[in-house]
Amino acid sequence: MTAIVTTQPAAEPVSVEEARQHLRLTSTAEDGLIARLIRTARAHVESVTRRALITQGWRYYLDDWPPGRVIYLPVAPVASVESVLVFAGDGAPVAVAPASLRLDGASGAPRLKVAAGAPGPLDGFNGIEVDFTAGYGADASAVPPVLVQAVLLLTAHWFEHRALGVETAMAAVPAGLDALLGRYRSLRL
């Protein structure tokens, strides 16, 4: 089972201006660095929590239907499932009818139930593709404030500890980050 991002978020949960204010900077000279740190901090928070902060497209590959035909999607929250394709032995895709799919996208472990009559893959390797949209919303206003704060905290930490010789500071996460992310972590199934 493999999952990839097919459409990157169109925005970040924290703007460069918000991060600059948090860092108490008045100059715009380091805005490029701050923007990169925000993207990296968002990606880190998403990886640790298994949550998409801003709306993004995902593709999930499976070899076969799991037991009970319940697919646990790898990231939360899931807003919609765009398509489920099953590949025949000749590589031709067969679309699973939307009526055969039932999504529980809001739970901590989003899941997709596939009806028993839906076709199965004939080729066992990555024979099923699930395309879905995940994220709290299209902009920062939809992201839980605790997760926004975690992105700000990481951005500031990495900004302050970017000099050579501070490998220990870079390797450690800032104090309080685990507490911020704790209730948003999803267990891997």
Rank of each mutant, 00 (worst) to 15 (best):
P174L: 01
R42M: 12
W65A: 04
E17Y: 09
R102I: 05
P98V: 08
S27C: 03
T49R: 00
G176A: 00
W58P: 00
R50A: 14
A118Y: 13
A11V: 07
L152K: 14
P77Q: 07
R183V: 12
K113L: 11
P174K: 01
V5A: 05
P77M: 08
L23T: 04
V146Q: 15
F159C: 02
G182Y: 10
V114R: 04
R51S: 11
A99V: 12
A43E: 14
G89S: 14
A138S: 14
H161Y: 10
Y136D: 01
A150F: 05
G165Q: 07
P144G: 00
V48L: 12
V14S: 09
D64C: 02
V70W: 04
A109W: 12
P13G: 05
L154S: 04
L154E: 06
H161G: 04
P13H: 03
H157A: 06
L33G: 09
P66H: 06
G108V: 07
R183M: 10
D64P: 00
V143Q: 11
L23W: 03
V78R: 04
G117T: 13
G89K: 10
R185D: 06
S83E: 13
P119D: 05
D178F: 02
L62Q: 01
Q8R: 12
L23G: 03
R102K: 13
A19M: 04
D31N: 15
Y136S: 01
F159S: 05
E129I: 00
S83T: 13
P9A: 05
E30Y: 11
R24H: 12
V143K: 13
A88M: 11
V114W: 08
A41G: 07
T26C: 02
A43L: 09
V143F: 10
G117A: 15
V86Q: 09
S141T: 15
V96Q: 08
A35Q: 15
T40C: 02
P66L: 06
L153P: 00
V16G: 05
T55L: 09
A169S: 10
I71R: 00
R51P: 02
S107C: 09
H22M: 07
Q21N: 10
Y184P: 02
A118C: 13
L73Y: 06
A179N: 11
P77C: 06
V78W: 03
E167C: 01
L101K: 02
R188T: 14
R20I: 03
D90E: 08
D64I: 03
G165E: 08
G32S: 14
A175P: 04
A150H: 04
D63H: 09
A116G: 06
W65L: 05
L112V: 01
S141E: 15
R50P: 08
V45C: 01
E12S: 15
L152A: 07
A41C: 08
L53V: 07
I128E: 04
H22K: 09
L152T: 05
P66Q: 07
A171C: 00
Q8C: 03
A97H: 15
R36M: 14
L25W: 01
V96T: 08
G137L: 02
T40N: 14
L152F: 04
V151K: 07
H157I: 08
A169R: 10
A179E: 12
A175R: 10
M1P: 10
T168S: 10
S80F: 02
A142F: 04
I4K: 11
Y61H: 11
Y136G: 00
A97L: 11
